[in-house]
């Protein structure tokens, strides 16, 4: 069974991104998981975040562990990256930037989708 986790929330405006990541890590322990960053969710991947002054946790560091958890398919939506002026090289981890046609395929080939 293949699970797709979609991260579409900005990193520190709510706890959605952090709790979504927790769910993804748990999912990877039981099943094959992929993750797609889209909309404001792409902002989660920006390097050198310093949310300490906000009093929130810098969970972007945890993304580095995704491959160790067996999450090898990490996608970013191209139009969202463009919207925020981001390139793959701006991200804390290696990501595959994909267009909406590919995203359509991803949605088809995964059995369940969890949106965060």
């Amino acid at each position: 069974m293949k699970l797709l986790f979609i991260q579409s929330a900005a990193p520190h405006g709510s706890i959605s991104a952090q709790e979504g990541l927790d769910a993804l890590l748990m999912g990877s322990a039981f099943s094959e998981c992929s993750v797609l960053f889209t909309n404001e969710g792409v902002l989660q991947l920006i390097q050198n975040q310093a949310p300490d002054e906000l009093g929130t946790k810098n969970f972007s560091l945890t993304f580095g562990a995704l491959r160790d958890y067996g999450v090898s398919q990490i996608f970013c939506r191209q139009s969202s990256m463009q919207r925020y002026g981001l390139n793959a090289s701006d991200c804390v981890i290696d990501v595959e930037v994909v267009n909406d046609d590919v995203i359509r395929q991803l949605l088809n080939e995964h059995d369940k989708v969890h949106n965060f």
């Binding site: 069974m1 959605s16 748990m26 099943s31 369940k112």
Partner: peptide, 21 residues
């Protein structure tokens, strides 16, 4: 209970329906 119950629920259902915030 733990988050594992979410994944288990996902793996053992034909459909997962999420109601967002």
């Amino acid at each position: 209970s733990g988050l594992g119950q979410l994944i288990d629920a996902s793996l053992n259902a034909d459909r997962v329906v999420t109601f967002g915030a």
